[in-house]
Structure formats: C-alpha cells, structure tokens
Design a protein around this nucleic acid. Structure first.
Length: 391
DNA sequence: TCTGGGGTCCTAGGACCC
DNA sequence: TCTGGGGTCCTAGGACCC
C-alpha cells in the first residue's frame, strides 16, 4: 500500500470569509490587514481580484493602497476565521483519523488506506472539495502525493480552487518541472545565494552533489536542497512534539524613546504573555526581549533563570533587566517583544514554596484574574500604568 | 513602498565539565 | 607550560513559514 497524503489549503482565506459574509464584497478587491491610514501595517490576505493589481500578502498597506485605491480594506476578524476554520477541519476529519492541521487555513489529510471507505484518494479529494464548498461556501486547493512535501507544493500550484495529483514515481520529474520559487523551504535569501553561485533552476541544483550544496549552505540546508529537488521528503512537516514558546510583540506607529513609556509597553506585553502561559497551562525559565530600532535592525537578549516565570510582574522585571542590558537609548524603538521559551507543561513550580517573597500571593491573584477573564472575555484587566496616554 | 505578529528550526561560538 | 577531545547548555542571530 502506497502512501497518500492530501494537502488542503483554503484559497485567500480571510478575504474569502469576508466576501462570504458580505455579498457586496464579492467580485471586488478585498484586502484584509491594515486600513489605508494605519501606519506600519501590512496586508495579511487579499482576494484574487486584489492580486490582479499586484497586491499580495506581507505588502505594506500603504503600497497596497497605491496599487489598488479602490480596494476594500478591512481589519481581520480572527474569531470568525477560526470559527470557519473549525468547520472546515471537521469536514476533513470525516475522511481520515489522521488530520494534521498546519495553520488556520491548511492541513494534511492522510488518506493512506482509506480506499475501502471512500474510493481512490483522488476521488476523495474531489469529494472533500465539494463538501467544503457546499457546507461553508469556501473553496480550497488540494494536492495529492505520496509524501507531504510534494502534496504541499502540488496544492500550491493548483490555486485557486484546484487539484493536482503527483503520481507515485513522478515526484522527481514534478520537481524538475517547477520554477525555483516553488521550492518550498528555500526563501528569498537562499534563492539569492543560489543565484549568486550560478543555480537558477531546480535542474541546476539537481546537478550539484550533496557535498557541494552542504559546503555552500551548511549541512542542514545542503541536504534539504539535495533531497527537495529529488522530491524526497525530509520530514519538514513532522508530527513530533516541538520545543515551544509563547511570545507577544508590538510595532508602534511612532518610535519610542522615553524609557518610562518603553517599560510601560513591556508591562503590557508581560501581561499578554503571562496570561497566555496560564491559559495554555505551561511555563518556562527562559525569557527573551526583542528590540527593533527605527532603522529596522533587530536585536534580542535572553536569560535563563533557575525558576519558572512566577507572575506577570516577575516576567516584567526580568524583561526590564534584559532590556537594560541591550538597549541603546540613543535610538528610537519601533518594536518591542517578549517571549518565554523552552516551555514545559504545567505551571506549578514546587521550588517556589521555599523562597516565597509574596510571589505565591501574586500568583493566586493573577490566577483569579485569569479565571475572571475566562468567564467574561470582554473583561480586560490591566495595571493602572497601562492607561497612561501614549504619544 | 517601507516593511505585522506568531511561531519553528538551525548555526556558531563560548562556557563549563570530565 | 602547553594543550586533547567530547558533551551539554546557553546565547544571538538569521532563515523561513503562514
């Protein structure tokens, strides 16, 4: 029995949901992300009508507005998208017990051995597309192949509302037929470097030895490239448990220079991150602070402590100390971020009991706040300091 | 045109220990 | 006085993806 992986990807997902909920947007360029007036915002997703104007994801909103002034610019409604995503994923799960959701809008469905129930996988793929369209009004693109890597690329080239099947044995020829920018996992930096070494096509890379590629790009990337152009999956989408982190970051409309305001923003981020730690019932000992200066250069500073983060105040104090280590006060700050890394499940830190400087009380207060927020999601608890006027 | 936010993984170098 | 080799942990930065 050969493997059959289906990769399914919702087309222009956020924009399509907006067109579904607002019939008057259908057939028009819809651009989800920032509004034209929002400083320092980017396009999250745009409809295919908007793509005709050259608009695409990650483009600054200001540029999108120049290209497409008649576009319908909208802020995202993440709650709604997650709701729709859940519906779609539920349909997938009717066709296989093994659905690996990769993000809000895509998943791998393992159709290996489902022939007896649903027929050949290519028929199942069409059935899934039909079910999603009928039950949600959304379209998906699907790729079917003997491994996840090829399935992922196949769904990408079939967009929108398409289906592409790479038959077993055709993987290598399929890869060789693609332009370099379809090589998933090699982004713009790697493509630039490939070009600078004289590799302009997938076939060019195919001619190179693994030794040559490894000496140019390092062992990992070298082996990845060598295998990818042959259609060999190198476990890019493994289901193994990963090291986790929780982070929050904020880009400011105007650069920050005042230390009190900078620390107030860190306090806000500490709250965000700590409450998410509580929500996900995990914790960690490593804290990272990220600073992006006005010239877009970015630095990080991190510390690993003997004990888990105990409260949002604890996280805040650690973040301030880390910031002080690295912060160049002569430069404006456009972004601040805080992350807790190397998370482990469970929030209780037994050692805490031995060195209690009122931390357990604080922790209890914050847990109480958390459960209040859980009951009433409109409730937003913030320290008074976060209500000061921002410049 | 002026660049979001949330993640994962890899690399290289240094510290430290045996 | 000069100097092994391996292993692990930590840090900073970078690439990539959605």
């Amino acid at each position: 029995m050969s493997n059959a992986f289906l990769h399914v990807d919702l087309d222009a997902f956020f924009a399509s949901v907006e067109q579904l909920d607002h019939p008057e947007y259908r057939g028009k360029p819809v651009i989800v992300g920032g509004l034209p007036g929002d400083r320092r915002s980017v396009v999250s997703t745009c409809s295919y009508e908007a793509r005709k104007y050259g608009v695409h994801s990650a483009m600054p909103t200001s540029k999108a507005f120049q290209l497409c002034p008649s576009g319908i610019f909208l802020h995202g409604r993440m709650k709604r998208y997650h709701e729709m995503s859940y519906k779609v994923m539920s349909i997938f799960r009717e066709f296989s017990p093994d659905v690996q959701q990769m993000s809000v809008d895509e998943a791998f469905i393992d159709l290996t051995g489902t022939e007896k129930l649903f027929g050949p996988p290519e028929n199942t793929a069409m059935l899934i597309k039909k079910r999603v369209r009928e039950e949600t009004g959304l379209t998906v693109s699907a790729g079917l192949a003997s491994n996840k890597y090829i399935a992922k690329i196949a769904s990408g080239i079939s967009k929108p509302d398409g289906f592409f099947h790479v038959k077993e044995g055709d993987e290598e020829a399929f890869m060789l037929s693609l332009p370099l920018d379809k090589l998933w996992g090699a982004g713009s930096k790697t493509r630039q470097r490939l070009n600078s070494y004289g590799y302009f096509t997938i076939a060019d890379i195919h001619k190179a030895s693994v030794t040559a590629l490894s000496s140019l790009f390092g062992n990992h990337t070298g082996e990845f490239l060598y295998n990818a152009v042959r259609g060999i999956d190198t476990e890019n989408f493994s289901t193994e448990a990963k090291s986790r982190s929780i982070s929050a970051e904020q880009t400011f409309p105007f650069d920050l220079t005042d230390l009190y305001i900078i620390e107030t923003e860190l306090l806000e981020l500490s709250y965000d991150v700590f409450f998410r730690l509580l929500k996900e019932n995990c914790n960690g000992k490593t804290v990272q602070v990220k600073i992006r200066y006005d010239d877009f250069s970015t630095v990080t500073v991190s510390g690993t402590y003997p004990r888990n983060v105990s409260t949002s105040d604890d996280l805040f104090e650690k973040a301030c100390a880390l910031l002080r280590k690295k912060h160049d006060a002569t430069r404006g700050i456009r972004l601040l971020g805080i992350a807790v890394q190397n998370l482990e499940d469970g929030i209780d830190d037994a050692q805490g009991e031995l060195f209690d400087f009122g931390e357990n009380k604080k922790k209890a207060v914050e847990k109480a706040l958390y459960s209040m927020q859980k009951k009433d999601s409109s409730l937003h608890v913030r320290k008074a300091r976060n209500f000061i006027k921002k410049p």
